[in-house]
Design a protein around this nucleic acid. Structure first.
Ligand code: MN
Ligand code: MN
Ligand code: MN
Ligand code: MN
Lengths: 235, 235
DNA sequence: ACACTGAATTAGGTTAGACTAAAATATTAT
DNA sequence: ATAATATTTTAGTCTAACCTAATTCAGTGT
């Protein structure tokens, strides 16, 4: 008996974990302007070598219907099918983070790694049920917007705290989830999304003095940490 | 910068999804006596060809520390490390089924497929937190015993309803989770684990007439369905 | 003891996705 | 405009896990 693959399953998830990772990286590196993403940037982000990236982009861009548009020596951007899958993965990731945090009591520095793995493997049903028991949450534990189902997500207008002007109040919109140690440090300093901060001073090596509302003393943080905190103008 | 793999992660989950599937199949086909499992039986169960099985068994049995003991032309059985991983997968699977059913409101014919996929990818933390919010459940939705963490599981003393003697009350201990359509039929007939049944009659083609307590009429089921219901003597 | 048959293994091939080393191309600096 | 440098691609390998076709082996019946 030949086992014929479930066509539903195949159509829902025709992409491998590896292809998924490329698509999500292209989405995130391309940003809101959907800029061409370079081979180098992808290799760096994915932790693999550039020839592997070139090979994958050639393969992906030669398949029909194609997931990406690739221009040799120039870069790659998502085609419609690739963009759909990438945003779906972002939704899976952020819903999973919310779920792991709220239901399974993970701390906010623990959720990313698990979500990064599971986002590839959950079914549509799992996604829908998790969204339902959470009451269709809008925001993940790090302040990132959870895109709606089947919808293209949006990039928030936010900028690294490291590039915010001095003495101008800013509200934290999100923090990068990619480094657990940074997250623990950020939490220790009381810098959750929603908190308003003012940069008092930047010293020569780039480290910041930041004032929080209703706090006596300012907090100090290095450039690196200030690069993983994102803010907008306080309304 | 070379990315060195997280040693914890590696030691916890050094097995691929494919190897996982072999280990679980060897566990289940070997049964409580840990009988040698044949190449054919594995190929059949896993839906792959026999030469692929031979190749995998040769590879697995030549690695140190070995997951399986393989005797050419005779069969394969689990080595200690393989048995540990296989029981861990069984625990993951059954906990996930319980979780999907109780928390995410999956029906009992929907849980198996999702658990079969996710069992390979959840972390120890996920396993522990799910067990905690469920209150360390003992039994999965199909009546299977959930093994304790790090513990070797047990095979229950149960037998297919299809081989139970006539007119002797039997209590359903579990039902096979591998066929969703059968599960829906079993549910329709009111045959949950815990229910006591008596076989009134077996007709020539092997189909059964089964009486349930406190029910007027008997239910009819074919041989196939009676082979996916497991029972023990009613105390 | 020997032929038959079914099960298992060997031999050789494919695909996905990674790697290194070398070559080609693009960008930047003189 | 040309040379130096950085980026990208090509060429050739490797491993995991599957496949088909051909061969070998083990158990059975005469
Ligand atoms: Mn989805
Ligand atoms: Mn996040
Ligand atoms: Mn585990
Ligand atoms: Mn089950």
């Amino acid at each position: 008996m030949l086992v014929s693959p479930n066509p539903q399953k195949t159509s829902v998830h025709a992409t491998s974990e590896s292809v998924d990772d490329y698509l999500k990286a292209i989405l995130e590196l391309g940003g809101s302007e959907e800029a061409l993403v370079t081979t180098n940037a992808l290799a760096e982000r994915l932790g693999i070598r550039t020839p592997s990236v070139t090979g994958m982009l050639q393969k992906l861009s030669s398949e029909r219907p194609t997931l990406v548009h690739y221009e040799k020596h120039r870069g790659v951007r998502l085609a419609p099918a690739g963009k759909r899958r990438a945003w779906e993965l972002v939704r899976h990731h952020r819903l999973l983070e919310r779920f792991l945090h709220d239901v399974l009591k993970y701390s906010w520095d623990e959720v990313h790694e698990e979500a990064e793995r599971l986002e590839h493997f959950i079914s549509e049903r799992f996604e829908d049920r998790v969204a339902a028991i959470l009451g269709d949450p809008e925001i993940d534990p790090h302040g990132h917007v959870i895109p709606h189902k089947y919808a293209q997500g949006m990039f928030r207008n936010e900028v690294e705290l490291a590039r915010w002007p001095l003495r101008t109040p800013a509200t934290i919109t999100s923090v990068s989830d990619r480094n657990a140690a940074s997250l623990r440090e950020i939490e220790r300093l009381g810098l959750k999304p929603g908190v308003t901060v003012t940069i008092e001073d930047v010293n020569s090596s780039g480290s910041l003095c930041v004032r929080l509302p209703g706090q006596m003393d300012v907090v100090r943080m290095n450039k690196n940490l200030a690069g993983s905190i994102f803010v907008t103008a306080t309304p």
